Amino acid sequence: SEIVVAMYDFQATEAHDLRLERGQEYIILEKNDLHWWRARDKYGSEGYIPSNYVTGKK
Rank of each mutant, 00 (worst) to 15 (best):
A12W: 04
E46H: 04
I3G: 03
H35P: 04
Y26H: 01
E30A: 09
A15T: 11
R40I: 07
V4D: 00
E21C: 11
A12D: 06
L18N: 01
I28P: 00
R40N: 02
E2P: 08
Y8G: 04
I27K: 07
P50H: 05
R38W: 15
R38Y: 15
K58L: 14
D9N: 10
L20I: 05
A12E: 07
E21I: 14
D17Y: 15
V5M: 08
R22N: 05
D33C: 13
N52M: 11
R19Y: 07
M7L: 15
N52D: 12
A39N: 02
M7A: 05
G56W: 13
E30G: 06
E25W: 11
I49T: 02
Y8M: 11
K31W: 06
A6Y: 03
G44W: 03
Y26M: 01
L18Q: 02
R40V: 07
K31P: 02
R38V: 10
K58M: 13
V54F: 04
W37K: 00
E25Q: 10
R40H: 02
W36C: 10
I27H: 08
Y48L: 12
T55A: 10
N32P: 14
I49L: 06
E21P: 01
D33W: 07
E21F: 10
K31H: 06
G44M: 06
K57R: 11
G23C: 12
Y48N: 08
E2A: 09
V5E: 05
I3R: 09
E30I: 06
Y43Q: 08
D9G: 05
Q11M: 13
V54P: 02
I28R: 01
E25C: 12
Y43M: 08
K42R: 11
G56F: 14
G23F: 07
E2D: 11
T55Y: 11
S51I: 05
R19G: 11
I3Q: 05
D17V: 15
W36F: 08
R19E: 09
Y43G: 07
W37Y: 06
Q24V: 06
S51T: 07
G23L: 05
Y48Q: 07
E21V: 14
R22H: 08
Y53P: 01
S1E: 14
G56C: 13
T55N: 08
H35G: 11
W36Y: 08
E21R: 08
G56I: 14
Y43N: 11
S45P: 01
Y48V: 07
A15C: 14
I27W: 11
P50K: 04
W37G: 00
L18W: 03
I27V: 12
E14I: 08
V54Q: 01
V4T: 04
A12R: 07
V5D: 00
L34H: 12
A39R: 02
E30S: 10
Y53D: 02
R22V: 12
H35T: 10
E30V: 07
K57T: 11
K58V: 14
Q24G: 09
I27A: 07
I28V: 11
R38M: 11
K58E: 13
A6E: 00
T13R: 13
K31D: 06
R19S: 15
E25G: 04
K31G: 03
R38H: 06
E14C: 15
R22E: 09
A6F: 04
V54L: 05
P50F: 05
Y53M: 12
T55R: 12
Y8L: 10
N52P: 06
I28M: 02
I28G: 00
M7E: 06
R40M: 10
Y48S: 05
K31T: 06
K31E: 03
K42E: 06
H35Y: 14
A15M: 12
A39I: 04
L29N: 00
Y53C: 12
F10Q: 03
D17F: 15
H16P: 06
N52Y: 09
L34W: 09
Q11D: 14
A6T: 02
Q11V: 15
E46N: 03
E30Q: 09
K42Y: 06
Y48G: 02
R38C: 12
D41P: 00
L20C: 02
E21N: 07
D17P: 08
G23N: 05
I3L: 09
A6P: 01
V5F: 09
